[in-house]
Amino acid sequence: MDLCLFAEFSFQSLSQYVLNGLLMGALFALIALGYTLVYGIIELVNFAHGDVFMLGCVLTYFLCMFAPEYPTSLIFIPLLLLIVPICCSLLNITINYLVYRPLRKAPRLVPLVSALGVSFVLINVGQMAIGTSPKSIQAQLLPSETNQSSANRETENATRSNEASEELTRPRRSWLTWADILLIGTVIPAMTGLALLVKFTKIGKAMRATAQNPIAARLMGINVEFVIALTFALGGIFAGLAAVVFTLKITTIDYLMGYKNGLYAFTAAVVGGVGSIPGAVLGGILIGLIYSLGAVYIGGAWVDACIFGTLIILLVFRPSGILGTRVREKV
């Protein structure tokens, strides 16, 4: 069987890559949810979202400096999962309030350019915080497996977090690390929680109504600005959760990681259908698979091009994505 030229084919490693892809996909999906929620409600591509994620990773990194080693760290991890998402959430709410809210009535490109500006500001903050070279967390928060720590050390020597994709491609002795289990244990409740919130709660229905027709929502007595702020808050929470899990899994962060991962996540949102929550999940998984399998079978450098190519093709031919959302009713 001649499937590819770049890597030795073995069923075991293929399934490992697929598994890695699904795990990364879950991460992308978490971040993608932030993009899709905000876009669904105010039709803004929030360029800054990826950098909020990055700052969440930076915060996690700093908090880990105070982390106790395993097994005491097991108390610390829930603390991380509480503090970082809340901080990211507050950051997101603040950005919305200061930058986007005054521009509600402006043409679409104006808040878009502002979002670019916010992204740059956040990147600068990240750069001030951790400098221009990647940083790795030293603490062993999770039970170390021989593979995990040697992977850590080698990741430290890698120059950019892109090269973390090489870490993904290295065959693992064990299928799931503890970081992966944490990932699954975080992502699934988070997404389920969101789905339940949006479908069954009053505020969730208000969010859906506002996304479908903001003027009508106002006429129902819904405080649309509050709903928008809540959406940003939720997006921030997901960015924060993704940040904790990502940092504990990949263990290396750098100040530009928000840009790349943000674009992957946004592509995921578009693939699945921007504005659609299950779409973000589906898209995340697909992009994760492309990311993982692509790194192995077509070489890390072209993975980027592949994913961006996917974004372009989708935007040109099927902007509504797979689980297509209708275009908002024209006012």
Binding site: K205, A206, R208, A209, Q212, N213, I215, A216, A217, L219, M220, I222, R326, E329
Partner: peptide, 15 residues
């Protein structure tokens, strides 16, 4: 300005 992807009942509930 009906909410297109809410049911009739949900639209009324929104009211």
């Amino acid at each position: 300005k009906i909410f297109p992807r809410l049911t009739v009942k949900e639209n009324l509930e929104m009211g």
